[in-house]
Nucleic acid binder design. Sequence first.
DNA 1: TTGTAAGCGTTATCAA
DNA 2: TTGATAACGCTTACAA
Lengths: 340, 340
Amino acid sequence: MNLKELSRRLGLSQTTVSRALNGYPEVSEKTRRRVAEYAERLNYQPNPNATRLATGKSNTIGHVIPLSGHDMINPHFSDFIAGAGEVYNRRGYDMLISVVNAAEQSMTYKTFHRNKRVDGVIVHSPTIDDDRIAMLNRMRIPFVVHGRTGDPEDSYSWVDVDNADAFQKATRYLLELGHRRIALINGLEPMTFAARRREGYEAALVGFGLKPDKGLVGSAEMIEPNGHKWMGRLLDSPAPPTAVLCSSILTTMGAMRLLRERGLTPGRDMSIVGYDDRLSFLPSSGEDKALTAVRSGIRLAGSHCADMLIDQIEGKTGNRHLLLEAEFVIGNSTGPAPRN
Amino acid sequence: MNLKELSRRLGLSQTTVSRALNGYPEVSEKTRRRVAEYAERLNYQPNPNATRLATGKSNTIGHVIPLSGHDMINPHFSDFIAGAGEVYNRRGYDMLISVVNAAEQSMTYKTFHRNKRVDGVIVHSPTIDDDRIAMLNRMRIPFVVHGRTGDPEDSYSWVDVDNADAFQKATRYLLELGHRRIALINGLEPMTFAARRREGYEAALVGFGLKPDKGLVGSAEMIEPNGHKWMGRLLDSPAPPTAVLCSSILTTMGAMRLLRERGLTPGRDMSIVGYDDRLSFLPSSGEDKALTAVRSGIRLAGSHCADMLIDQIEGKTGNRHLLLEAEFVIGNSTGPAPRN
DNA sequence: TTGTAAGCGTTATCAA
DNA sequence: TTGATAACGCTTACAA
């Protein structure tokens, strides 16, 4: 059933039917009702490919996902799209995902735009020196960044967690417990979120009169095995830390695993503060009190990004910014620093 | 730059240019080369919306992802799409993901098809009594199932792991170690893969002259907290098992966590066999020997599904089937059953 | 308030 | 081997 056929049956022109269906004001209420009823009964649905060709609008949001070196997709991603996907569904948008090699990334954005495949994109994993912001602004394609870059903050829309603040608070908490050698198992530091976490961590140390020690900071992709590896390195170093901050729940798990292997007890032999993205498949911090953690749900961030982007696409707003505050949950993985 | 403009500059008709670009045989080599060269130089790319409208082909694969009760996306999903996405990218397809409520699911498939949004779909999480197979066959939309349903196996294409065999072997291994009370922490049993795992498990028991005990089987969504919960229930039951099979690496982790809390050592106080989907963010079984596991990469399954579906769409094949065999990796989480 | 007709950028049919 | 021209199914000036 297409427009032509539908309007033939109604004895109206395609124009009128199209207008009635799309809520144009100049259609009489009576006609509109009759059209709506017929469309419903005959189960008419416009062909989106035709609509897109005619309007240039795709009702689709693009996500470009680079396969990082290890050929893996960021494990936090599935929760992000759960949040975003729900919003897309509710607001009538499709989600187009393009898995690409890192090198093809910017080309993919260009192609998306030029071909009118998407009305807007979500930018994932921004780096400090990220050329995508300028590029997307140049192309005038609506976008929202999940996180921030080094660009001026009002030059683009973003949804971010106050990472610096969160890690500063967490570090201060450890300092107040008496810890002086505090390590950080961070994400990859070209990523802005990781850089900011380090800033917060160092600011707390400096504020306490301590000098940050590079030997106490690790940086790696945030997967379980890396938490394990870094915890081992830290313990084996000449002057091991008494407390560790982890940038992800996955590295936290890896670090915990290593402590177990060494027979060490979290909170007593080593204090650990994790970062809990509230991944839906893992236990939530705060429930069993096992973990002291900075907490902020990534799924929520996904839905905020989606709403913000669609508002922008539909011309409801200009650039917007949302800075979420992370919670700090105290559990049993932290405790006072050992004497001497 | 569009076809019209390009052909004007070439002094050729749109028809010829289109034919040259699409590899039709009736174009002279000379013309073809000239056209190709111009297209390249002027950076021409056909507008896919126009192509789709004209051809009815979308070069897009759909994935319908129902949000299950807990509003979460299957955590194994991100690895699956890493595998599939790479193939799509290589073979020129887009991935369209629709996150829907469980109730909207079949409607979404219908809409996808009717509107020519996708050329085919991947069916996730098939159940034994799954109405999607009949529906998709009726709609004549190409599809590949990741897993199998209760339908005749040659009535659709699928990629699956031999779950029954894998769990039969794993159970037999435990039996040979002397275990007699062997539990299974399974996935949701309406899902075919879970039902088959249970079948394999029970077949091994029966083959050994034992009677399956319903009290030793748990069934729940395969996330960490459920492994933890079920391990606890099993230990607290009147006659606890001496060995446990887990249907997922996540429930395995949860079960291990509970053992630790109770001060029990895997492989000595309780034998555990896990299922390792080789999720990219977790340690791989077999590396540190911590876990005895049935192993089959979900990412590989994703790429197989994608290739099979595209072959089908492009008319290269009819229904096909691929049964992958899981590996069995022996680690330290299993050991002889305790005496008496 | 409704209708006519052009346009969106391709591919496909038919004729030359 | 090439070219006119009609689809594909919608939206949108412009006219009535």
